[in-house]
């Protein structure tokens, strides 16, 4: 469960203060499917980064399963990200010199799992996104949709409870976007919290809960 209470995020740009988030209060239950929409610069990515513990709010509290995350140290936040949070980015962020399987295995590698143990898990994850036959391909040998599915397999390999996707279909055509969204939704059906930031109305409308952000605040929250 995610509890945001009066989250503010202020960026200092020169002498000016940019209020990217203004008193955002939001509660998200286990297994929810949320879409966040809104005009450019409304604070969607900033909110997602804070939810993902990549960024710290200027004020307010963020509790994850009852635990206050703002008082966590750097390492504790990193460990929480590793085990509980998955990220999917618009530009995939695959490591270009690693194969699809190695990219997927990266989080397991970093957490110290032996190659033998990893093998089965990675195969399963690639199978889930329908890319088992592309395991040994490097990212530049894959299409955009395939790359994004590799990125999803990587984001979920540690079995996180939260999956954060910032415009996951932003670089994809309609059909590949569709298949990526379907993979994400399938994961949500298995119980993961899915939060998708998108500019695409059709995709946004698919979510059970739809949030609209304007100018750093939540203007609409429809279930």
């Amino acid at each position: 469960m995610i509890e945001l209470d009066s989250i503010e995020r202020v960026f200092q740009v020169g002498d000016e203060e940019v209020h990217a988030l203004k008193h955002v209060t939001l509660t998200i239950d286990k297994g929810e499917y949320l879409s966040i929409m809104g005009p450019s610069g409304s604070g969607k990515s900033t909110l997602l980064n804070i939810l993902g513990l990549l960024d710290r709010p200027t004020s307010g509290t963020y509790r994850l399963d009852g635990i206050d995350t703002t008082s966590m140290g750097d390492n504790e936040q990193a460990d929480t990200r590793r085990h509980r949070i998955g990220f999917v980015f618009q530009s995939y962020h695959l490591v270009p010199r690693l194969t699809a399987a190695e990219n997927v295995a990266l989080p397991l590698m970093l957490s110290g799992m032996a190659p033998k143990e990893r093998h089965v898990i990675v195969e399963q994850a690639l199978d889930n996104v329908d890319l088992l036959d592309r395991a040994e391909h490097r990212p530049d040998q894959l299409s955009g949709g395939q790359r994004q599915r590799v990125a999803i397999a990587r984001a979920t390999i540690m079995q996180p409870t939260i999956l954060l996707a910032d415009e996951p279909t932003g670089n994809l055509d309609h059909i590949s976007g569709e298949s990526v969204i379907e993979v994400l939704e399938a994961l949500n059906k298995q119980g993961i919290i899915l939060i998708v930031v998108t500019h695409d109305m059709d995709i946004g409308e698919r979510a059970a809960r739809r949030i609209r952000m304007v100018d750093g605040s939540i203007s609409k929250d429809v279930r």
Partner: peptide, 16 residues
């Protein structure tokens, strides 16, 4: 830089 950002997002500690 992107790769470093990614590693951090995946929960890699600064020391790593």
């Amino acid at each position: 830089t992107h790769e470093i950002g990614l590693l951090r997002a995946l929960g890699t500690r600064r020391r790593q």
